[in-house]
Design a protein around this nucleic acid. Sequence first.
DNA 1: AAATTTATTTAGATTCATCTAAATATTTTT
DNA 2: AAAAATATTTAGATGAATCTAAATAAATTT
Lengths: 219, 219
Amino acid sequence: MLTKTEERYLKAIYKINELWPSLVSTNALAHKVRTSAASVTDMIKKLAAKELVFYEPYKGVRLSAQGVAIATQLVRKHRLWETFLVQKLDFEWSEVHEIAQHLEHIPSEKLVQQLDRFLDYPKFDPHGDPIPNAEGKFTLREQLLLSRLEVGQSGTLVRVKSQQNDFLRHLDKLQISMGCTIHILERENYDQSMLIQIDNHHTVMLSKQISIMLFVRPA
Amino acid sequence: MLTKTEERYLKAIYKINELWPSLVSTNALAHKVRTSAASVTDMIKKLAAKELVFYEPYKGVRLSAQGVAIATQLVRKHRLWETFLVQKLDFEWSEVHEIAQHLEHIPSEKLVQQLDRFLDYPKFDPHGDPIPNAEGKFTLREQLLLSRLEVGQSGTLVRVKSQQNDFLRHLDKLQISMGCTIHILERENYDQSMLIQIDNHHTVMLSKQISIMLFVRPA
DNA sequence: AAATTTATTTAGATTCATCTAAATATTTTT
DNA sequence: AAAAATATTTAGATGAATCTAAATAAATTT
């Protein structure tokens, strides 16, 4: 049985590796779990002793097959709970990440299974992230960074790249929500900001910073 | 902010005190939280320093008003989660206690509130235990130990006194479930066992041991 | 009331996850 | 390739929750 902390590290390694597929550095991991590099080294050794990661001192760490399996189940639980909180308990998408961080560590195979069934086996969570099934498999959708769309093109918002509270609440303010249609009206060359129209309705300026955080399915 | 362990102790004191309204002894508490008396003494001092309990060395411990408030909220969360697991996720009443032990420590005021709403403000959990509301108040129903009913009398099962897995599964086997009608047909004098009829249908022998674990509302 | 038994507390050690500071390895700059 | 900067590991300490063993207090028995 793993401690909550061990699970946190495994999932952090998984997530970093998802973005940057290579050995995960001690520092990157320390940043992700908000602790010191020294603590990370300690924990990595523990996980290596349990054969959940492969570790080469000074080089970095990567998950073993077993480590991947555990991390995937954590991601599954996290995303199912987020879906539950939004769909059933009327939470905002900006509120659920933190609570799901706790819920994902509740130990019960049956709980996840029944939750999945209760939600009718959702494939994506409120942020558009894919939900692994019981076997750890998940669907990848066609997706493209909004910043890559050309002027004149349109896309449907299918995923956001950050769960940060203030980022999501900013999107709320702009009335940008999952599934909305975004049409590119203009693009400024000097700062890559873009003028967009949302759901054929209102028009807003989007900074590059934001446009690289949104995934769309091109129309 | 309290640790999960501190919360466990507070709730344990609350529950022991509920059954035996007096100072809670170190040993009783040690037994309840399955640890040593020495550990309990340590923890009690910590809780006393936080003014959540009043502690007299060698005499015992009792909750302060603040301690009662926290314990009551834990009971509330525990019972709401149990209700959720049975009503929404199709768990058996014998399976939910352990999972709820974990869920009750998830920190989020809004989570409890929304869960309560989602369940439509239930007053009792699957074992018939009253669910405190957000203010900590709960309803007491008229209830009587089944063992106190006379031959010829009937009652409706409204509460069970234990959450133990094997006890509840034994009731399942006897087809005794919450809300069923129990009619006393005979009582043996030498061991206080009773012959009962359930829902005007099948007939079984109940040992005293079991009859003192069931609360009924007399018909 | 003294002796014995039982309950409780104290003392000292252990494990987990963390920290800071110092040492060492690696990478980058010059 | 040497120097400087950065990243990583080691060493030693800390706080939380636990343990065992020993000391002490309270309750019970004789």
